[in-house]
Design a protein around this nucleic acid. Structure first.
Lengths: 206, 206
DNA sequence: TAATATACATACATGTACGTATGTAAGGCA
DNA sequence: TGCCTTACATACGTACATGTATGTATATTA
């Protein structure tokens, strides 16, 4: 039984390898061109395959996009969401989320959601449902942190928690898209954005 | 010479009337579906015409989109940009811009830029150039206000002015997209976002 | 090693939306 | 009032991308 460490790859290895290559190429393409501008032949070629391989692994373009969306969400959870769990103070957790998100957005795949969300907003489409579900999860998480921080007394009152949480997410994503995840200032501005929207004073000078 | 107040509309009147109807329908469609998902027959029908009328007034789909982009930019300048000119203090001008932008974003046409910017980012496309030009103008304007405010002493030092200005614009647009311009909290959060990104303390309680 | 299943490539069919060419009615000018 | 131009509708051609059907090479199993 040949595994990934063996010289001759097994079928499952081949499948997994090509699948992740296709997924990554599709994620890059989605974040650059959006959904309907994404052409599957280009995706397959960038991954080193043809459309045949793609349709062997994914039932349709929509199925591929859904897989990408959930894959990116998983990566976000692993790379960003985990940072919040390491913090005790909810405000620190929010800062960690913001900075982590900024760093995550330096990867091109991070912009998938914002790139395709407008294409499906308002319509009843599976991709929209997936995006909504993922977004709702993140907003709920942020909202819980804000609620804790308000109980804690470290965050002043203001608009409803859910509104702030949604605004935080949207503002952060817009910020990162604009900065293209390039500058070294992305994390600073992300933290500033969080402070502002929560009603916190600016960070003391280091 | 019959003008718009006359009973029988003149040719120029007819032309202007249908043109603005088509423009508005196209703007709504662009902000909802983006560029490539926008189908011209739907645009024409929503405006009360057919594609024939559209192609009589606009050379191509691209030409129509460009016209929409510049038209929306003009509306923004009239409704939002003018607010900043009324303020003496640069920080107050920035707040006025943020609040005005929030209110502007309650109209569906306001989201045109964010809806189509990802479709052309990275490519060498006339629509991208137009968006870049408009964006550069707004960022420069915001940047000048920030520079004044820093000289003024009312805004602390931090990341480069241009970076903050760009981040401010991106963050605001992301925020407004997320809130869908619905809630009454959009202006509050917009101002909070500006305060945070500038490094200002939260607003004193009214 | 023969037989079968899997991973992928190639070829084909279809639909959709753009752009253009042509036709028709209404306004402008002599 | 007759001719010309403008505003719009209808009809057609075309290109492109998706999805499917078929073909081929590699891996698995007996």
């Amino acid at each position: 039984m040949a595994t990934s460490e063996s010289l001759r790859p097994t079928q499952a290895d081949r499948r997994a390898r090509s699948r992740s290559a296709l997924l990554e190429a599709a994620a890059r393409g989605l974040s650059r061109y959006g959904y309907s501008n994404l052409v599957l032949e280009q995706v397959a070629n960038e991954a080193g395959y043809t459309r045949g391989a793609l349709y062997h692994q994914f039932a349709s373009k929509e199925d591929l996009a859904l897989a990408v969306v959930w894959w990116v969400a998983g990566e976000w959870g692993k790379e960003v969401g985990s940072l919040a769990l390491r913090e005790d103070d909810p405000v620190d957790a929010l800062f960690a989320l913001a900075r982590g998100h900024a760093i995550f957005c330096r990867r091109d795949i991070a912009r998938v959601r914002m790139a395709i969300v407008t294409e499906f907003s308002g319509r009843d489409h599976p991709i929209r449902h997936a995006l909504d579900e993922i977004e709702a999860g993140i907003i709920e998480r942020i909202g819980n942190l804000i609620t804790q921080a308000r109980r804690n007394g470290s965050v002043p009152p203001g608009p409803p928690v859910k509104t702030i949480a949604a605004g935080l997410l949207g503002g952060l994503e817009g910020l990162m898209i604009q900065l293209s995840g390039q500058g070294p200032h992305d994390t600073v501005l992300a933290e500033r954005l969080v402070r502002g929207m929560l009603g916190l004073p600016p960070a003391p000078k280091a």
